[in-house]
Amino acid sequence: MCNKSIPEISLLLNIPWSAVSGIITKWKQLGTTATQPCKMTEWGQRMLKRTVRRSRQLSAESIAKDLQTLCGLHNNSA
């Protein structure tokens, strides 16, 4: 798709131009289009606070495991 504009690529592939733009941006920044592990964003911080608030009896290990699963990370030290 070299030398094509974002709208042209969008029409050729029949996907939204915002998706095309996001993929191109990801490629330029990371050199890959593969899914990356999530970072602790505002959303992640809110999820952590909500989880702790709702389940005060859970251990830190249990909460950490849940967050790793949620973010697609796997702890291989177990």
Rank of each mutant, 00 (worst) to 15 (best):
M1D: 06
C2P: 05
N3G: 11
N3F: 15
K4N: 03
I6H: 02
I6G: 01
I6W: 01
I6Y: 02
P7Y: 12
E8T: 13
E8D: 05
E8R: 05
L13R: 01
L13T: 06
N14Q: 08
N14D: 07
N14A: 13
S18R: 13
A19F: 07
G22I: 00
G22M: 06
G22D: 00
I23A: 14
I23V: 14
T25M: 07
W27E: 09
W27N: 11
Q29L: 07
Q29F: 06
T32S: 13
Q36E: 11
Q36P: 01
Q36F: 04
P37V: 09
C38N: 13
K39W: 10
E42I: 14
W43P: 05
R46T: 04
R46D: 07
L48G: 00
R50Q: 07
T51R: 12
V52F: 06
R53E: 14
R53M: 10
Q57Y: 07
Q57H: 14
L58H: 05
L58V: 05
A60L: 13
S62W: 09
I63C: 04
A64L: 08
K65I: 05
D66F: 12
T69K: 14
T69M: 09
L70I: 10
G72M: 01
N75K: 08
S77R: 14
A78M: 08
